[in-house]
Amino acid sequence: MADEDKSEKTEQPTERKLRQAREKGDVAKSQEIPGWFILAAGLGIIAVVSPGLSRGMAESLSLFFANAHQLSLQPGEAIDLATATAMRIGLVVGLAFLALIVAAILGNVVQQGLLFTPSKLEPKLSKLNPVDGVKRLFGPQGWMNFLKGIGKMALVSIAIGVVLWPKRDELAVLPMMELPAVLGLLRVDAMLLMLAALIVYSLIAAADFFFQRHEFIERNKMSRKEIRDELKDTEGDPMVRAKLRQIRQERAQRRMMAKVPEAAVVITNPTHYAVALEYEQGRTPAPICIAKGVDAVALRIRELAEEHGIPIVEDPPLARALHATADLDVPIPVDHYKAVAKVIGYVLSVAKGRARGRK
């Protein structure tokens, strides 16, 4: 059943699905990225801090060894000396350790941003089950992590070996060198080693990041049913949406029909199209389309026009053109001004003729 469910999840996850996964703490995260940042921070510390640090340590140790016979071994003085030395070393180590912590945090932030999921901190008895623990360690994922770790260590070791092998003769004479020279040489060699490891680790981190991203997408893929259900949750049932759309259209149509008695003329096809135009000299700068429709709607527009004595002019090309290009409650397109002006002019002339006839 699980295999069938997995085979059905063929669709890419939606934004809502990914957002819900993030809220649960499920994100595409590579553990190698923080490791890369820590390694880069270590290289930076050695490059920036170690010159002054190595000189200071060389001077201190030189004085210490040169004057070892003058050092007092009285309990109080020995403790003071040890405390001062420990504080000096602790300050340097503490700052370096703080920089590595910041680098590790930054390595996580650049991948997923700031993320806090209290649910991940909740104690779960299932995590204490030794059977489940053994399955995690010796299951497919556990073996994959084990082989990945072995491969990573092998590649980094090869890179370090490539750097160290040409320097094997230099390392052999270290015991015969002065302390400042030893510290300086170790600093350079350490930088070369970390740089080689960083280059290899960059490839490892990039590959693992894309792999974790792929696994994250695969893990959150959805079935077609899940996408339909999500669509119902976010946008409502399709039948309900269709009903609401129908209600809105009916209301808009009623508002449109209520304006037909205000029209100056209705231009028809004569049976399939009808467009009602409002125009009053001195009040409207151009004719305004206040109603339009086809078939049943066009018939209703013509009926309302006849009921209220609105002139109806049959002009099929103009009726079709206005229906296709004119928007409701705005002036008609400029391209139709001339044709509509002729129609309105004709209507006004007929109205004036009738007025003179009544007199």
Rank of each mutant, 00 (worst) to 15 (best):
L137W: 12
L277F: 06
A242F: 02
R219C: 01
G52Y: 07
N269Q: 07
A242Q: 08
I89V: 11
L244H: 06
A96C: 14
A86G: 03
L137K: 13
V275S: 01
D295R: 08
I79N: 02
D237R: 09
I158Y: 06
M57Y: 12
L195N: 07
V313A: 04
D315P: 02
G142Y: 13
A274Y: 02
R251N: 13
R241I: 01
K338N: 07
Y201Q: 01
L198I: 00
L91D: 01
L328M: 03
T268E: 01
A99R: 00
K167M: 10
L100E: 00
D132G: 11
L61Q: 10
A21P: 00
E122K: 15
A242I: 00
I45E: 04
F216C: 03
G42F: 09
S62D: 06
A206N: 04
T325G: 01
Y279R: 09
K135W: 13
V27L: 13
K9G: 06
A324S: 10
V110L: 05
G142H: 11
K352D: 12
L322F: 00
E262M: 07
G293C: 10
V162G: 12
I199K: 05
A159D: 05
G107D: 13
R55L: 13
R88Q: 04
A276W: 02
L137N: 14
E77D: 09
L121G: 15
T284I: 01
P175I: 02
N108G: 10
R16E: 14
N108Y: 08
A298Q: 04
S54D: 08
A28C: 05
P333C: 07
E122A: 15
F64T: 06
M177A: 07
P285Y: 05
L73V: 09
P180E: 05
I310E: 05
E280S: 14
L100S: 06
K24A: 15
I290Q: 01
F97D: 11
I288H: 04
V334C: 01
P13K: 11
L192N: 11
A286R: 09
V48N: 02
F97Q: 08
T85V: 13
S119N: 14
V182Q: 14
K225R: 14
H323Q: 07
F64I: 03
L348I: 07
G94E: 04
H69V: 15
D295E: 11
Q111P: 02
L53D: 04
E278N: 10
P311N: 06
R320Q: 10
R224L: 15
P238T: 12
R22S: 09
T85M: 14
V162N: 10
Q112W: 01
R283L: 11
D26K: 12
V275L: 02
E278H: 10
I158H: 00
M87E: 06
L174Q: 05
I158T: 09
G90P: 05
M153L: 12
I312M: 00
A196R: 04
A2F: 07
I105A: 11
P130Q: 03
P317T: 00
I89S: 01
V163Q: 01
